[in-house]
Each structure stands twice: as structure tokens, then as C-alpha cells.
Design a binder for these strands. Sequence first.
DNA 1: AATGAATGAGTCTTCATTCAT
DNA 2: CATGAATGAAGACTCATTCAT
Lengths: 198, 198, 198, 198
Amino acid sequence: MTDLKESGRVRAADAKRRRLMRAAAEVLHRQGAERTTIADIARVADVPAGNVYYYFKTKDDLVAAALSEHARRLELLTGHLDRLTDPRLRLRGLIETWMGQRDLAARYGCPTGTLAVELDKRDEGGLDVEAGKVIRLLLAWVERQFRELGQPEPDGLALTLVGAYQGMSLLANALRDPGVMDREGARLLAWLDSLDAA
Amino acid sequence: MTDLKESGRVRAADAKRRRLMRAAAEVLHRQGAERTTIADIARVADVPAGNVYYYFKTKDDLVAAALSEHARRLELLTGHLDRLTDPRLRLRGLIETWMGQRDLAARYGCPTGTLAVELDKRDEGGLDVEAGKVIRLLLAWVERQFRELGQPEPDGLALTLVGAYQGMSLLANALRDPGVMDREGARLLAWLDSLDAA
Amino acid sequence: MTDLKESGRVRAADAKRRRLMRAAAEVLHRQGAERTTIADIARVADVPAGNVYYYFKTKDDLVAAALSEHARRLELLTGHLDRLTDPRLRLRGLIETWMGQRDLAARYGCPTGTLAVELDKRDEGGLDVEAGKVIRLLLAWVERQFRELGQPEPDGLALTLVGAYQGMSLLANALRDPGVMDREGARLLAWLDSLDAA
Amino acid sequence: MTDLKESGRVRAADAKRRRLMRAAAEVLHRQGAERTTIADIARVADVPAGNVYYYFKTKDDLVAAALSEHARRLELLTGHLDRLTDPRLRLRGLIETWMGQRDLAARYGCPTGTLAVELDKRDEGGLDVEAGKVIRLLLAWVERQFRELGQPEPDGLALTLVGAYQGMSLLANALRDPGVMDREGARLLAWLDSLDAA
DNA sequence: AATGAATGAGTCTTCATTCAT
DNA sequence: CATGAATGAAGACTCATTCAT
């Protein structure tokens, strides 16, 4: 078998794997981990149900894959924002991104946050830890920006900002009101500007 | 059958109902709605499994009952706080109550918030709306305090405060760190003090 | 509810449990543990498939129950034989019982022996140990008889006798020839008679 | 394509086939037929899973191949023993070989015997017959030795000896005690010596 | 109302076997 | 022939809900 054929096959398999991860990320966000069946994800990914297990040994593996897909997306976003030279502008960009997802948040909440909430109810499997890692990723990036801004206690500020985001997403979702994202987003932007330009 | 016996029975039945509601509130908080079986709740309530259905026709009814139990507890709390004459002290009392539940929050998050997150993933049944109502109850009470304080946009402030609470609970839970509740709670108290004593 | 009704119900439930144990013993002997489905056993026991789990939490529990049913039958047999005053007659009775099951042995082998063989292929679950216990039960009883006979090394003789039984059952089964049971059974009887009447 | 290439390929294919047979013999002995997947065997044989079917059309074919591998090994052994001039020494050699495999027997039983037990539970496929053939092979060789020894009823003696072997293997396995093989093996050697030197 | 038991739909998971390249 | 991937039929197990008494 030529390398071309080989790599073509590998590429096709990888593509399917990626499709499953993406589908898992989407469906788990919308339906939650417990209400989502493997068949649901397979359908969205357009993969035969029985074949999912070729790529992911268990449902939990798929959930973990969805979490890492969310982590990947987060890193894509922060990677983009990192191109901005001013950390304040980066944080501004982050908040504006959140605001841009107002409708999704009002319908399904923050993907990572809601998954974390659900997975934290479990005693075993370690998926709760995995979800925590994604949130830590965001916290760490935000903290870095505050540090570059010369703020004291950048970790506390990160907690405040990310907490505010999780809180507003949850409220927007519970109240089914995207306006919450606008209102609280605007407040966060103002708060950011008000921070001492050290 | 005498009225006495009758009323005794009614009382016994009511007691059982209450036991089930309380058990549901506890267990659903700890395990989440999907991972909790009717048998789980029946066991904690010390009620035979087959008997649950005389009090609650469906599992969803039990979940709704748990939500209303949480609402009742919330009203118990605000009722207590309402005895304080200063609305600022009332809000302070609320925040301190949240901080007092730091360990529970770090382990299972906010009962209402996490239930709302989970129930919002559903399309039908209306339990999401029910969860929203409990959160609205809290929002309304907080808003009233801010109004009494003479704050402009008391609704926005309520959103901010309750949002902060949900956010810090979620982070404390996801990071499994009760310290988050202390830190953010202290920040909220300071923020509250800083608000213009209009 | 009256005690009568209560006990009636308990009796019915017990009866079903017993039916399942008996069915499991039979079907597992005939088909082996791996080739037997829960549905197979349920059908023979005339119990709805979904209901089996009310009585036995897992398939392994059912296998264990089958083993204990075989143990019960063994104890029933030895209990009968124990009424004989002469231990030599008891052993004779045992061998004759084996010979009486010639056709069953030729078709399916010794219930306990074949189950033990299959379960010993497993690494986990402890069912192999459970099967071993039943065999030890038989060994212990046989050893006791030889001891009462005043034989030196009654444990070695027990090993020889039970081993011979397992071996002849296996050969009868593999060769599909009940005659093996007759032939070897007769030899064992003669061997027994030849043992020094100490 | 040259013949040389051709024959090289054939040789490679043969080697793979042999590897699969050997792997099947080993793995089926350890795990049993039902608990062994084709993938298990392929892995041990270091053959890609999808490739197994070019050598064996079905799983049953592989099981049959494992049986014939065991037959081959048996013939290898008896071939060796046949070099001894004294049939009594040949039987002695056989028993000593059995004793030499004490640990394997205690862990997994006799390869042929345990496979026969498992396959005899089946109604169809004829693998039970195949397993029986391997045992008959052994019986026939043993019988021949007894006949050469001038023993009356060499077939009965063969049944006794092979039955004892199967029985002691089963007990060693069920009791997880290699000592059974020593003890019973020694007894068989003594028994062999005691046979009338006709 | 009370209660142990019954029911059956649904979900995850495993594998022998087949297919496309 | 080689090989990774595909397929689909089981089978174990769970649980909300209902039933018989």
C-alpha cells in the first residue's frame, strides 16, 4: 500500500474522529451528559452508532473528548486574542466574545460551565476533574492578562471575571433572557476600564 | 372511622410527603436530577419505593417538589433577614449565609443553580421554568433591598449580585475549593459597602 | 395487611427466587455460563426477563446462586447417605448415584466440575472460588468417610475418588459415551471393596 | 512475479497461519473459547485483526485449528515417547510430562480437556466432536502401550489412566493447587508399577 | 392508602464478520 | 493478500411506572 493511500485512510479516520468530537461538544452542550445517548452523537456526526466504539471506548471517553474540544476552542480564542498587544484589549475581546454568544448562552448556558456542574455530581470517573481543567485554563489566561496589566492580585481578579461570566451565563440561561448577557457584559467592560491603569 | 383517626392519618400522610420533599431536595442537590432514581429518594425519606407514587405522580413532580422545597427554604431565609431594619444589613446577611455554606457549595454547588442548569437542558416538562421561578424569587428579593437602599437600577444590581453568587458557587464547585467562597464573598461585602449611600 | 397475605406474598417471591435458582442450575449445566443468557434462565423459570434483576442483581449473582443450588443438592445427597451406618456403604451409594446419572454426564458432564472448569478461566469475580467451594464440600465428605473407615491418608483417597469421578464424567462427555460411567463406576466400586478393611 | 517471490510469499503466509494457530492454542487454553475474541488471538499472533479471516473463515475454524495444534503437540510428545523401547517407560514418561506441567494445570487445567468441556456445551458446529478426537488420540496411544504390555482390557486401563489425568487436572485447577498433580501423579506411577508384569 | 413485585422500554457495550481500498 | 474501518445483532443492566393484593 502506498503512503498516499495510507495517509488518505488515516486522514479519513481522523476526520471521523474529529467529527465525533465536534458533535459530542455540540450535543453535550445542548442536552447535557446524562440526557445524551451515544446514538444522539453518532447521528449528528453522521457515523453509524456501532462504529463510535471504534474511536471511543466508552461514553465517558466521548465526554472527555468533548471537554478537550472545548479546551481546543478556548485556546483558539485566546490564541487570537493574544495577537492584541494590550492585555486590556484582550480581556475586552474576551468579554465581547461572550456577549456575542448571548443567544446560545440564554438557551444552553456556558458549555464548559454547565458540563462542569453536571459532571461534578459524579463520584467517580474523574470527568469532573477534566472539566475543572478547562475552567482552570480560562482562569490562567485571564490571570495572565491582569498580571500584565500590573494589577495586584491578578488571580483574584480572574476569579471575579470568570465567575461573573459563569454567573451571567447561568442567569441568562435560567431566565431565558439573552439581555442578561448584554447588561452584565456591559458592566464588565466598564469595570475593566475602571481598573487602575497602573 | 373517627375524625381523630382520620386527621391522624392525614397528618401521617403529610409528614411522609414532607419527608419526601426534603429528601428530594437533598438528594437532587447532591446527585443531580438525571442520576437520581426515585428509589434513591424513597430510601433517604424512608418510604417504600412503591408508595412514592401516592404522593407524587411522576418523577418530575418530585423534582418540582424539591424545587418548591428550595423556594420554601429561601423564603425562610429572606423572612429572617427581613427582620433587620437596614436593607444593607439584609444583603450583608445574605452574603454571609452564602459564605457559611462554603463547603457544601464546593462539593455540590448552589442547589437551585445547579438544578436550573440541568433542567434547562430539557425541551419539555416545564421544570426549567419552575427552576427559573426560584431564582426569580431570589432576584426579586435582592432587587427590593437595593430599591429600599435608594439605588438606581436595583434590578441590574440584583442581577450582578445573584450572578456573582452563582458564578462563585460554580467555580468553587468546579475547582473543589471552598476558599473561592471566602474570597469572592469578601469582595461582595466590600462592594456592597462601597455602594453609594444615596 | 394481614400476616397471611404478607406471608403469602413472601412465599410467592421466595418460590420465584427458588425457581430461578433451579432454572439457573439446570440451564448453566447444559449450556455453560458464557453461552447462557439471562433470558434463557428467565424463560425456563417462567419469569419475565426484566424481573430477574429484582431477585439477582447481576448475572454473576445468578451463577453463584446456581452453584449454591448444586451445593444444596450435594448436601441433600450426602445427608441421605449419612443415614447409612457403614461409611463404605455410603461411598458405595455415592458412586452408584454417579453411575445413575450416566446419561446426563455423557451429555453435559458433571454440573459442578464443568462449571468450575469454565469459571476458572476468569480472572475476576471470584466465581471460580465459589465453584471450588462446592468441590471442596464433596472432597471433605468423602474424606470423612475414608477416615471413618480407618484408612491412612483419607485426604489422598478423597482426591483420588473425586478425581476419578471428574475424569470419568469428562471422558463420558467428550466421548459422548455413557458406558464410560458404567465401566469406571464398576472399577471404583471394586477398588473400594479392595481397600484394606482396617 | 517469479516463483521465488511466490514461494517466499507462500512461506510468509504459512508462517502467519502457524502463528495464528499457536496463538489460538495458547489463548483459548487460558481464556476459554467463549471469553476469547478473535482480536485477542490476533494480538498475540501479531497479526492485524482484519487479516485473520484470510486464514480462517470463522472463529470456529480458529478453534478447530487450536485443537489440531494441541493434537500436533500430543503427537510430538508420543512420537518422542515412542523412541523408548519399554511401553511401561513410555507411560511413565507420559505421566511425568503431566506432572511437569503442574503449574499450568493448576492455573488453566488440561488444554484439551477444558476445551472439550466447553465445546461439549454446544449443540451445533461439530467442534465438540473435534475436541473428542484429540482425546481419542491420547486414549488410543495409551491403550496401545497397555496392549504391548500384555495387559488384559487395555482400553479400560487407558480410560482409567486418561480419566485420572483429566480428573487430577480439573481438581488441581479448581483447588488452585499444583500439589494435586504431584500427589496424584505419584499415585499413578505407583499404580503403573504395580500392574502385573504379565 | 400501602407495598412488594412486575413490566418493558431504553442504553451502553461487545464482537464476529464484512468491506473498501 | 493486507488492513483499518464498518456494521449490526445481541446481551447485560437500569429504572420509571404500574399492578395485585
